[in-house]
């Protein structure tokens, strides 16, 4: 019996297949690989977040225990309704501990609130469409989310004056994240990454400059090809740059690379301040 692959599709899948009939065919393997790459990046993001949350959580967990112990001590002292001089010292100790606990709790709660603010800003889930965006806000949120990932590298911000840029913020933030992670992975622990921004003739220019190992011309020529990677298979599977390029091109922009072996690499994203036509950029699966 000859199998008909179409016979295996349900009605929804058939409808989707037909809807895409007049667009260029994308090989399934590549689509899957792009999805895998996005999932890999999401995985790294989640791992980073888990670590970021662990610090305030650890402090709050300990402090909760300290408060319970402090209360136990106070209840013990008050049990006989008489507070002796020795016990008064103990009460003072308990009060000092509670004071310390409350200060740390303030910090921990603020840290977690800041994390949520950064996540919201990074994903821009509130404003998913084309919008006028402060790119510095996106860069700051992305750097905050990658804070743990970037250690112990020094990250320098050299921000110029930028106008609000018409773009899909969550997609552009994904580009920043890809470029920063690439820079991180190429740079030794004692190196540095510089993020530089400027505006020029209706365009904004964002450069991510690392002091890493750099690449020769042969490698540079291939870095935007799907599947090309200088890293282990675990990280991004060589699709971070093709995805970034696709997003930037959809915004009418470009990505340039300057690199040479031993002299680090500079990725420069150039975006128009205004989009030429009012069209919605294809979101894709993120």
């Amino acid at each position: 019996m000859q199998a008909d692959s179409g016979a295996l599709l349900n009605d929804d899948a058939r409808a989707n297949a037909n809807a895409g009939a007049d667009t260029p065919a994308v090989p399934d393997a590549l689509t899957d690989a792009v999805t895998q790459a996005r999932l890999a990046m999401l995985g790294m993001l989640v791992a980073g977040l888990a670590h970021e949350l662990n610090t305030p959580l650890g402090a709050l967990n300990s402090n909760h225990d300290v408060l319970r112990r402090a209360l136990g001590k106070l209840q013990g002292i008050l049990a006989d309704e008489v507070v002796t001089a020795d016990e008064l010292d103990e009460v003072r100790r308990v009060v000092r501990a509670i004071d310390g606990v409350l200060r740390v709790n303030d910090m921990a709660v603020e840290r977690m609130s800041e994390l949520v603010r950064n996540l919201r800003s990074f994903g821009r889930l509130d404003r998913a469409g084309m919008d006028h965006v402060d790119l510095h806000e996106g860069l700051d949120s992305t750097l905050a989310i990658l804070d743990y990932e970037m250690r112990p590298l020094v990250v320098r911000k050299e921000y110029g004056e930028l106008p609000a840029v018409e773009c899909q913020a969550h997609q552009i933030n994904q580009v920043f994240m890809n470029l920063l992670l690439n820079a991180r992975q190429a740079t030794p622990p004692d190196g540095s990454i510089t993020v530089r921004t400027r505006a020029h003739e209706g365009r904004v220019i964002v450069s991510v400059i690392d002091t890493g190992s750099g690449m020769d011309a042969g490698r540079v020529a291939h870095i935007f090809e799907p599947g090309f990677t200088t890293k282990g298979a675990r990280v991004g599977m060589g699709l971070g740059l093709p995805i970034s390029l696709q997003i930037v091109q959809q915004h009418g922009g470009r990505i340039d690379v300057q690199s040479s072996t031993g002299n680090g690499t500079t990725f420069t994203v150039t975006l128009p301040v205004r989009q030429a036509t009012i069209t919605t950029v294809q979101g894709g699966k993120t």
Partner: peptide, 16 residues
């Protein structure tokens, strides 16, 4: 390097 971790440990050890 996280001051809140160091401070939480201090509160606990000084109390207990």
């Amino acid at each position: 390097d996280e001051v809140m971790v160091a401070a939480a440990l201090r509160s606990f050890l000084e109390l207990e």
